[in-house]
Every structure is written in structure tokens, then in C-alpha cells.
Design a protein around this nucleic acid. Structure first.
Lengths: 202, 202
DNA sequence: TATAAAAATGAACTTTGTTCAAAAAATGTG
DNA sequence: CACATTTTTTGAACAAAGTTCATTTTTATA
């Protein structure tokens, strides 16, 4: 990522990501253009290719930033004193709020796709766990019988279901929950999941 | 869509969509190329623009087809004699199976996005309800207290949550449920939602 | 058959990502 | 400091790819 970059190049990379982030936040990842990046960063077209592999790489950097901010938001969301159910609701609400307040950046995370054969770099994958990390503790409390793999698996299901509701709503097409009812419906989902999880065998 | 098209053009449009569908199924929507479409359909480059607005229009046609096939699959999935819980599980399983058996086509539905300002045509939007239509009846049975808007709202939440789990798993990145456990986790989700829905006030 | 309308064509234009030989700047050395 | 060497920057050039449209070809009609 920033491995063997000189301080100067590091600065340039940061500047390029700054500019890209602003553009994605304003208009989405689809309208990112190499020429715009270059001129906004104050360098010639070819120069950005000395700190970045290609345009996907730029978006991946932006997405890593967003994932880290999302991770921090979720860490801050869960109250230190509440019980597990409270924590779950706080996390879900935090996720909804982050998505709504970072619409384009949040969307960019989940709509990028690399050409066949290319894989995401490790430094980017390292940011994925932020999505479910905070869920595991309260879930483990609600389901003391789940451990290790099974616990993580259920945390993933829980996250993905909430993500789906938010995603469908934000996406706007199809049959998403209207924005106004999003928080309420996600709460209902978390309630249902929590109770369901308590009562379900296995 | 096919409004005022001559029989000849209708044939051509069908051929173009056939070719596009095959390409999307094989390699995804990202690699669709106008020149490939034209040569595979046996016409010159410019000719496809006499039956199609642009490349997004082509993908939208393919997606409408897939939505209609998905709708049919879901209609066929629910057993005529089972109870509501059975129906829910059958629908969820049908959705998972369809997604897995139509990976690229199913993905194309949810990853397309039009440039700012453009909206999807009505003939495409008409295919959206297929996603939740079948859910409403069994849900109404499980929640006789929900009617009209509230019932539909909850159906959307239910669909979106299942979709999220499938989507995260198929997407492969992030923290999705491994393919092997997908059916089981979706079942668990539906169980939880069903029980939760039964017990939750409002 | 001659004329008009419809359809098909593909060259040309546009936009965009990416490369790379050349120029410029920075760094090191005697 | 002058020169050589390395590093960095540059932007013209190239390669897709989508889209348009004047021209040609085909079809329909009188």
C-alpha cells in the first residue's frame, strides 16, 4: 500500500485519495476520472500512476478509509454500560446512521468489483473485520451456547441481514424500506433476530 | 420497450438481448461490449442502436428477463399445501437457489446503476414487485395484525434481510456467510424472523 | 418499374484509462 | 561548484469503448 514510498510520494498519494474521496462523496465512484484526479491534485496525468496502480486502486483506497471510519463509528456507537440487546440496537442504529450520512462513500464500498482474476490487496482486506467485530461480544452474551466458528457465522448473518435492509432502502430501486421507516424496521429486525436467536435450537 | 417496433426490429432486439444475456451469464455485465453484441447478433455496430438506447438499456432488458424468471421460480417454490412457515422457508430456499444457479445474472440486477438524472423505465420497474409478492400471503397469516402498508413494509424488510445474507455470501468479499452454510443460515434467519414477528408487539 | 420510406452500415468522433520516451528535478561525487 | 547519475514528472500517444450520423442498401408502395 504505502510500503516503499518516499515521503514525497506518500504526500502525493494522500492528496490523490483526498481528492478522490471528495469526488466519490459528492458524485459516487462511477464518475471518477484520472484526468480530474490529476488536475485537482495539481500534477500531470501520468503522475498519479506513480503512486497508484489503476483507478480501481484509487477506489479501493477510498473504500479502506471509509471502512476504517465506519469501524470507528461502530466502536463509538455501543454504550459501555448497556446490556447486549441495547448494544445490538446501538450497533444497528450506528450502521444505519453512518450509511445515511455517507451515502456515496458507503455505497462505493459495496459496489466496487475488480476485473476477473484480480483480487483485493491484503491491506484492504484487513479492514473488513470492522464490519462485524463489535457484534460478536453482545451476540456471545445472548447466545452463550455459540462459540468460535458458529458464533462468527451467526454474527455474519446478523450483519448481512441488517446490511441488506439498509442497502435495499438506500439503493432506492426495488422494494426497499422507505428512508423514513428505516431505523424502525431495522430495530424490528434486530428485535426479531435477537429473540429468535435466543429461542432457536442450534 | 417494444412499443412501436416493427416485427423485424423486435426480432433483432430479442437477438441482442439473447446475446447480452449469454454474455452476462458467462462473464458478468461489466464486460459487455457494443461491438461484441453487434457481431454476435450478426449486424453492424450502429444497428444495435436502432433497437436499444444505450448499453445500460441492454443490461436493463437482461435484468428484466432475470427478474421475471426469478418471479416464476418463487411462484413455483411455495408448496400449495404447506403452512405459512413452510412457505417462508420455501421462498427463502428458492431465492438462495436461484441466486446460486444464476450468479452473474442475479448479480447484474443489483449492481447496475444509471448515471445521475436517468431513471429506470416503467416497463422495468413493473418487474420489481415479483421480489416480494409471494411473501405477503404467508406473512399476513403469521401476522394477522398487520395489514396494508405495514404488512408490505414488513415484507420488504424480510426480503431485504434475506437478500442481504445471500448477497454478502455471493459477493465473496467482506464477511459473508460461506457458500456451504448459506441455506442453513438463511433458514436460521427466517426462523428467527418468523418467531420474532410472532412475538413482537406492533 | 420508379419512387419513397425504412433499415443497415461503418467510418468518424468522443471520452477515458494507461503507457512510456523524453524532459526536468534532485541527488550524489570529485 | 560543475558534472554525472538517479529519480521524478510530464504529457503526447495509444488503446479501448460508447455513440452518432451521412451514406448506402433494402424494402415497400404506387
Amino acid at each position: 500500500m504505502i510500503e516503499g514510498l518516499s515521503p514525497k510520494k506518500k504526500k502525493l498519494l494522500e492528496r490523490v485519495i483526498d481528492v478522490a474521496e471528495a469526488e466519490v462523496a459528492a458524485h459516487g465512484a462511477k464518475t471518477l476520472k484520472a484526468r480530474d484526479l490529476a488536475s485537482a491534485a495539481g500534477v500531470a496525468l501520468g503522475t498519479i500512476y506513480t503512486v497508484v496502480e489503476d483507478m480501481d486502486d484509487v477506489v479501493t483506497h477510498v473504500n479502506s478509509r471509509t471502512l476504517r471510519r465506519l469501524g470507528a463509528a461502530l466502536r463509538d456507537a455501543v454504550p459501555p454500560d448497556g446490556d447486549a440487546v441495547r448494544a445490538m440496537h446501538a450497533l444497528a442504529a450506528g450502521y444505519v446512521t453512518f450509511a445515511l450520512e455517507n451515502l456515496n462513500l458507503w455505497t462505493a464500498i459495496f459496489t466496487q468489483s475488480l476485473p476477473a482474476g484480480k483480487d483485493y490487496p491484503d491491506w484492504h482486506k484487513a479492514d473488513y473485520p470492522a464490519l462485524i467485530e463489535q457484534i460478536i461480544a453482545p451476540l456471545s452474551e445472548l447466545r452463550p451456547d455459540l462459540e468460535g466458528e458458529a458464533l462468527i457465522l451467526r454474527a455474519r448473518t446478523l450483519f448481512a441481514s441488517v446490511h441488506g435492509v439498509v442497502s435495499m432502502s438506500v439503493f432506492g430501486r426495488f422494494v426497499g424500506v422507505p428512508r423514513a421507516q428505516l431505523h424502525a424496521e431495522v430495530d424490528a429486525l434486530v428485535d426479531a433476530m435477537t429473540r429468535g436467536l435466543e429461542g432457536v435450537a442450534q
